[in-house]
Amino acid sequence: MVVLGLSGITSSAAVLYLSLLGAIAGVAAIAGWAVSRSQGLAVTIGRAVLAWLLPIIPFAWVVGVFGAAVVGWGPPDIAFVLTVIGTGGGAFLGIILLGMSRSRYTEAVLSETVELAQWEARLPQRWRYVAIAGMVVTGILGISGLIAEFAFGIDWAGWFYWLIFFWSLFAGVENPRTFRVTEAGLAVGRPLQHRFKPWAALTGYTVTDDALVLQTTAWWRPAYRSDRDDIENLDTVVASLESVFDAHR
């Protein structure tokens, strides 16, 4: 919004860029102060269902700029470029904050419950191939869209830039995840993020020839899949899952 306001006064790229950096620094300072003054804020955010909005909120900048263009107040071209940069940076910052808050929440829950079983596993091989293909396709399309827009003037191609954000969904697909079965729920650990799901959020499990699959209650949430060959103590894990699901039925 700061950039939009100044764009009506000046079209200087340097001024608008510095205003963008200043606005980001101001928001970061306010957020840091709020977190430092609020005990357990990260845990509260990590517990909240709407925490996933953190990476989505920065897209309001895109709505503001294009909304201004639609109603006839045409911001300078540099405003669109800075909006893309600001939205991208804000979205990645939101992803980082989301991961940190969920990790803090998971740590808080694990400190007060009993662990029954643990294993490390990657996605099943078939799903790893799918994820790698998704990374390649979204990365190529996203970068190609930027090149087509700014180098060749193909305006509509710039929309492919947003596919880069889907690339982050597939990152780290070859890294194993750490699963912990506890009395309170299931903890899933990645290198940069830990998540916790109470048993009420899971419906059950299945063991196939190549995977251990934990189904979620929400139809739109993907199941947790583990490569069966990576699980060293499969019998112990299955016994623990059977006991907790029996207890929560």
Rank of each mutant, 00 (worst) to 15 (best):
W52I: 06
G142M: 12
S11Y: 00
G86C: 08
A13E: 04
S144C: 10
L93I: 07
S243P: 01
R228T: 11
F150N: 10
D77P: 08
G142H: 10
V2Q: 08
L54M: 02
F165Q: 14
G5F: 11
S103C: 10
D230I: 09
W73Q: 14
I164S: 02
F165M: 14
R122V: 01
L50N: 03
Y17S: 10
I147E: 01
F152C: 05
L97R: 02
I56S: 09
I143R: 01
T87Y: 04
F80G: 07
A25D: 11
G88D: 12
T10C: 09
N175H: 15
S103F: 12
S240F: 09
V81C: 05
W199Q: 01
A34F: 05
L20C: 07
R102M: 14
A133E: 08
R102P: 09
A28L: 09
Q118N: 15
N175V: 14
G134H: 13
G204K: 03
F59A: 04
V109D: 15
F59V: 05
A187Y: 03
S243H: 11
T138C: 15
G32K: 03
I154G: 03
A184V: 02
P58L: 07
V43I: 13
I147D: 05
V27N: 00
G204W: 07
F92V: 05
L141S: 06
T217L: 11
F160Y: 10
D229L: 12
A117Y: 13
E183N: 13
V114D: 15
I57L: 04
G153L: 01
F196G: 00
V237D: 06
A239K: 07
G139E: 00
T236D: 13
L41H: 12
R122C: 06
Q193G: 04
P222V: 00
E174P: 02
L20W: 15
P191M: 11
G32M: 05
A69M: 13
R195S: 12
V65D: 11
L54K: 03
A31F: 04
V35D: 13
H248F: 11
I231Q: 09
A117M: 09
G67F: 12
A201D: 15
A157C: 01
P76C: 09
G153A: 04
W127V: 00
F152H: 14
W156S: 08
D209K: 13
L123Y: 01
L141A: 14
W33P: 04
S7P: 07
L98V: 03
I154N: 01
D210M: 01
I30T: 02
I30S: 03
V65L: 10
Q118R: 15
S101W: 04
L110H: 02
